[in-house]
């Protein structure tokens, strides 16, 4: 095979930034040649947004592994005891879904504020804080759910159903705590005198948070159907 030499790009050519495959490079590597920072900001992919999707893929895979473990375990079990889901779990579900809504509102308010349409920083902060609060309510609620199970005498090692219930919900709560840390970071950045919140940071945090809601619905369905 011959080496094919592609015609080299010339500097006069306007950089094309709209194609993820172009080798257009990321924000940090590409100086604007035409002075249009907006172009860069809007179109160059940002690592944190990519990173969060990749991270979510890994989390999905982990929960897929848990699910398949559950299915295999159930198929060999002669000790499968039906488990009644503690009632507070349904309340927690509503709380978590509500937090997704407040976060989405917060994101829009942040955007308005960032574009300078409003100088009011407290509205987006309030919505973000509401999300944070709901998140903590969810975590506390899950803790209460564990307490309710313990009151029934169901511990981690009592039977496979309770084992899986504790493991799945605890791993989910750990991930939610990670999301709460992200939210706190966003709030912290937003409170700085000079605003330096990147759109990608806000987006990544909210994708992650919404995913926690979706993941919870999935976990709840698995628990409901299987346990």
């Amino acid at each position: 095979m011959a080496t094919t030499i592609q015609s080299p790009e010339t500097e006069s050519k306007k950089p094309r930034l709209d194609n993820g495959n172009s080798g257009g490079g990321g924000l940090r590597n590409l100086g604007p040649t035409n002075g249009s920072l907006k172009l860069l900001e809007d179109f160059s992919p940002e690592p944190s947004r990519t990173g969060v999707w990749v991270g979510l893929a890994a989390i999905t895979m982990s929960f897929a592994a848990f699910t398949s473990a559950l299915i295999v375990r159930q198929s060999t079990a002669n000790d499968w005891h039906h488990l009644t889901i503690p009632s507070i779990v349904f309340f927690n579900t509503v709380v978590l879904l509500a937090s997704s809504i407040t976060l989405e509102i917060a994101r829009r308010r942040v955007a308005e504020f960032a574009r300078g349409r409003t100088a009011n920083r407290s509205t987006p902060l309030a919505w973000l804080s509401a999300t944070l609060l709901l998140g903590f309510v969810f975590v506390t609620g899950q803790y209460i759910a564990w307490q309710q199970l313990r009151a029934e005498g169901l511990y981690l090692a009592s039977n496979p159903n309770s084992s899986f219930f504790y493991v799945l919900t605890a791993i989910h709560v750990l991930h939610v705590l990670g999301g709460l840390a992200g939210l706190m970071r966003v709030i912290y950045i937003l409170r700085r005198p000079v605003l330096s919140l990147r759109r990608s940071t806000m987006d990544a945090t909210s994708y992650y948070w919404h995913f926690m809601g979706v993941l919870w619905i999935y976990v709840l369905l698995v628990i409901w159907i299987k346990l």
Binding site: E9, G23, G25, G26, L30, E46, P47, T50, G51, V54
Partner: peptide, 10 residues
């Protein structure tokens, strides 16, 4: 993964 996808130079 994020580096390869996002940080390639022009």
């Amino acid at each position: 993964i994020a580096t390869t996808l996002d940080l390639r130079t022009r």
